[in-house]
Design a protein around this nucleic acid. Structure first.
Lengths: 229, 229, 229, 229
DNA sequence: AATGAATGAGGGTTCATTCAT
DNA sequence: GATGAATGAACCCTCATTCAT
């Protein structure tokens, strides 16, 4: 039906064209999509770009994901593997001190999430939450709630064991979360733009945050300044 | 991102303004644009929506801003009040202790930025940085650098005066920045989606962060655990 | 934003480009759409063709009709002006004989519908009914039912006045409808394809149908052949 | 309509066929295609649907028919059984009266065409004629011309034998054709949409049309109204 | 200055067709 | 032969931008 273009010689093409790899496709597309959505945002990413980065044509994308929005949701779902059961267990059986737990928590967060492609999901959710309220709610249920719960238990343990001060446990959760989220956001936004301006060494960053978080800025024993607002 | 036309300077600025009647227009457009860009992102915001929210017609928008991209840049510029000179002075003449400076810094950050519409800019920059590298660089110069510099000076002062421990000043800057940025990001993303899931009270949040930051989680004097990685 | 093509001189263009004629547009578009839908069918007609035939650009079409399907429905609605009230009245006050009514009915059908653009709607509905069941139902209500009712009354009148035989009134309605619909369908399908093969003169056609319908093929008084199936 | 490739002749026809196993394929595809083309039209029918309904894969369809358009033509050709030689003979040797011939003609038309899947071709041709002028011309040659010729001979016989009035033979042909085509069109369009609104009993319909056609609506002997236009 | 009708390039999605298996 | 994954031209529709009024 369509006027076929003059058959282009597949001259020295070593890779198999029209590869038949149904199993591999969705994963490659999801990877490409994650990268691009993180980099440019959902709306500014063109479907064709995703396909091209995955090494397939535009049409192939829609063979696996009926719409761009479904692709987005699949990207989130794919990378939201609920590993909290495992992590909860890991922390329940943790034998060290509570400060060590906090230290371990933050280091592991960086190693397992921050330093990996999974960190893109965090950036993606925070940037796109308002355009995808149902995704946001899903993330809330599946990640935020169990995550904060895990951290809260660490803090409560520390207070109960007399290792931590009588902190505001509920809101101190964010003293662990905030520095990690900040690091991840920087990695994917300003840090990715001008690395020369943001020579953030993640290990040193995490180390400094842990140190300040556990011991505070102030020299201990100095005159306690008043805590009135 | 498409190539932006060379920004056309609105020459009418040179003429003496008689009535201030219509002069409110650009401001209303910038306000509307800020809200919508923060809410939906640059790419997902339609020019017509901006105009409608500002109460003018589509054509009028392009009367003041030659392209959507220029509108975006104007939104950023408009809300990047270079108040660092003022703020630097405020801190240079600050008479209290360094812990008080940190406390003041974080409270004022929330009051002057976080609680106001200006906080949207932070969200916007972080979300859109990679689509607007020049904007990101501009922000880097105008906000990040002076901001971190200001905070660094506070920390150095505290160390110099023996009020703060021998912290990693360079990276401890983020111990102040991260919690504030996190609060602002939440306010504009997940927090705006499901307020019932995020009943964050900003004052209590800031208070808890300040408290933990200054005194740390650990009870002072407890056996210092080793700081090796 | 978009790279503007080198401004083409509107050399000798007498017609106003970018005409501002909001009132006229929908009608012109509906006319163009009717023609094309009749000619090529709904699915095979491209939106851009409709726009082009109406002398506007693709985008303009969607300014007035949100989707191609809505355009289709509007085409039907526009041309389905329920003139049955008027026609009912016309026939209720008809003073001639019932055969004259039949004759008048068929001639007027051709003049007011068959010979005009409105006949396209008939072709359209019949060809597309199964793709647009709601349209078909609507047409059923608004056109078919009142139309058959009108004709049934004519036939009943003829029987009641002793002018017509004891016909099967219910199904004799189609003895009037069928020839008219056939003529209209031919006009828009095979007749439009090869006029040289279909030199149908509508007036002679209608005349012949009326004549046969009223008096039958058979010579009157000839031996009635049996009517068993 | 796109330019159709020159139809490739399936050369395998020359080889002696061993098993008839797979030879059913093309027929099943043609059947499926006929149904779907009639139901949705050519453009709105997807090749994959045709294949699916025939119980084969998309690829197989194109094994037998090089393009969708060739499939369409094959559907027409397949169902255009040139049985006119046979039918002509049947009528040439018909022994009854001319009214009986008309009656027989219409009944047989319904039984052999109207009531069978072949009736879909009629609907298809009429609906798609303008998109396939060559098909229309072919149909004209193969069906319309011999069909009208057959009917014309019946009418002429009746006139010659004094059984029919001095009718306009040329145009009276349509008095037989129109009601049959109308019935078939209804069956495949509006009648298929809302059967509850179209409880057309074909036998009663055909009976009524025959009756009216042969004897007319008017009571014989009543004052002949003038036949001037 | 302000409007909003008009434009048309761009992007999401479909689907006839191809071809490696 | 048969399959169905892959392709990409084509089509519907959007929306930034223009411009006559």
């Amino acid at each position: 039906m369509r006027p076929s273009k003059p058959a282009v010689e597949p001259s020295a093409d070593l890779l198999p064209r029209r590869g038949r790899r149904k199993e591999a496709r969705p994963g490659e597309l999801l990877d490409a999509a994650l990268d691009l959505f993180v980099e440019k945002g959902f709306a500014a990413t063109r479907s064709e770009e995703v396909a091209a980065r995955a090494g397939v044509s535009k049409g192939t994308l829609f063979l696996y994901f009926p719409t761009k929005e479904e692709l987005f949701k699949a990207v989130i779902r794919e990378n939201l593997s609920g590993r909290f059961a495992e992590w909860n267990e890991e922390f329940d059986s943790f034998e060290g001190s509570s400060p060590e737990m906090v230290r371990y928590c933050m280091r592991v967060w960086w190693e397992r999430i921050g330093a990996t492609r999974a960190s893109g999901i965090t950036k993606l959710i925070i940037s796109e939450a308002r355009n995808f309220p149902d995704i946001a709610a899903f993330y809330q249920q599946e990640v935020i709630r169990p995550g904060t719960e895990l951290i809260r238990r660490i803090l409560q343990r520390g207070v109960a064991r007399g290792e931590f001060r009588a902190i505001d446990v509920e809101y101190s959760v964010f003293s662990i979360i905030a520095p990690m989220i900040f690091l991840i956001m920087m990695k994917h936004s300003l840090g990715a733009c001008s690395p020369q301006d943001y020579p953030l060494e993640p290990e040193r960053y995490v180390q400094a945050q842990i140190d300040n978080l556990l011991h505070g800025l102030c020299v201990p024993g100095a005159s306690q300044e008043e805590n009135d607002a």
